[in-house]
Amino acid sequence: MSSTPAAADTAETDQADLKLVKAEPGTGPGLITITVTSQTFADVYFAIKPRVKLRRVMDLYCGKHSLDPKTVKFIDDDGRFVRSEQTPEEVGLQDGSTISLAIDQQGGACICEN
């Protein structure tokens, strides 16, 4: 893809700010706001385009909290697991949607033989 010039990026950011002030979903230039919630961390808000892969959100969130992306799972509002290759459009996320974080669990108890 071709990289957009810096002026266009700044204009895009201004458009995002205007959208957030008006609080009208879908009126911005294609950006939606996704909230990632978990039990132990504060909510984190991401602005992302609906066709960008969610891997970026996951990697940024895991980097922010020093988590290994392999050991966490992201669950959308309908209880389905979100894969990192999916886009918000495929998952069905809209402006203001929430993704929950869950730590992967392991099970492997065994008998200790003396």
């Binding site: 893809m1 990289s3 957009t4 810096a6 990026d9 700044t10 895009e12 950011t13 995002a16 700010d17 950006l31 706001t33 984190v44 808000y45 991401f46 602005a47 992302i48 960008v52 970026r56 940024l60």
Partner: peptide, 12 residues
């Protein structure tokens, strides 16, 4: 596009 995303991340 990475720069654009980073700008949005900083804003949030």
């Amino acid at each position: 596009s990475y720069f654009s995303f980073y700008v949005c991340y900083t804003e949030c």
